[in-house]
Design a protein around this nucleic acid. Sequence first.
DNA 1: AAAGCGGGGCC
DNA 2: GGCCCAGCTTT
Length: 384
Amino acid sequence: MSESIALGRSAFGAFRRALRQWYGANCRALPWRETPDAYAVWLSEAMLQQTTVRTVEPRWRRFLARYPTVQALAAAPLDDVVAEWSGLGYYARARNLHAAAQRVVADFGGRVPDSFEALLSLPGMGRYTAAAVASIAFGEAVAVVDANVERVVARLDAIADPVSQPATKRRLWDRAQELLDATHAGEWNQAVMELGALVCLPRNPQCGACPVARWCAGRATGEPTRYPVKARPAPLRETREVAVVLRRGERVLVLRRPAEGSFAGMWELPRGEALEGEPARDAAARIVRETTGLDCGPRALLLRLKHVVMRRRIELLVWSAESDGGRIRRSRHEAHEWIAPDEWLTRPLSTTQRQIALFLRDGRAPKRSTPPPDTDDGDLFGGS
DNA sequence: AAAGCGGGGCC
DNA sequence: GGCCCAGCTTT
């Protein structure tokens, strides 16, 4: 009776049956599970990278309505595609998707490639996404490992090594491939992910409802939440940024970022990081000078936004200012324009810049903001 | 091997 | 406020 918990080959049949049966009875009715269209499946996988199902669902419908085929996407201007992506984050996904669609049209006769290897050659297609599309849309027997699978497998085998290590990653991929039900690869991959999404939850695993709990070594330890083991994350860096609204009547100055790098091609206010101990008003003037060559006197603090990006905690202070009317000499951007907030909102822009544009148009602070302090000197940085 | 890239939901 | 999410790319 003291049989090992570890799931061995002799139990694969029962393990697969148990999970597939559970999936058949409990899977969510997600729209991309109802289409045989490889392009639609691919789009769902691209959107779902680091993004939750709830967020993706309406955006997937809207994107498909606007770009119903890979040809339509390939023919669309990149700016429109990025604008359509606005709010989803990780905008490189939109640029890669667009480039990949053009490659599909140019090199694959307009048909989404049907093999893992060919898919992997497309921009934005990593191992996960290529395997997901190959298995779900084409039935290829290749396993996926996403955050859900990682958690399920790490618990199943009670893997004690940090999952961030490449060696551990390899082990997870190998194990997932071994467990794969090759005759129903797409359904199987979704079943493992669904288990992670509905039952094998990060903080409150529902082991009592788990169809494969009897094979789970993590559960047997009594502390399934110890897995997957995460390495200690690096501390957050505190940064202060300023952005400046330069007005000309109803219009404001926006600058277009270069086509390469972060926030590529997006339209933003002059902005930048404040130096250590530098008063915000001085930083605002300096950044306007550095980005546009204009001298200005920042007058008032309009808005204060806070957000956390990866390892940085950013406080963004938005100032209004009058320009000296001089000629603009850009140094970090590839275009500039004086436009109304309404027009700005139709361009590619980040959520933070969108919040500023909405504030300028509506005069209301977005949810994520805190009221500007009533200091009139703008030295918010505790310099004194 | 590690960092960079967004944003929203949830506890 | 911290943690997490159907990852990929670059250094």
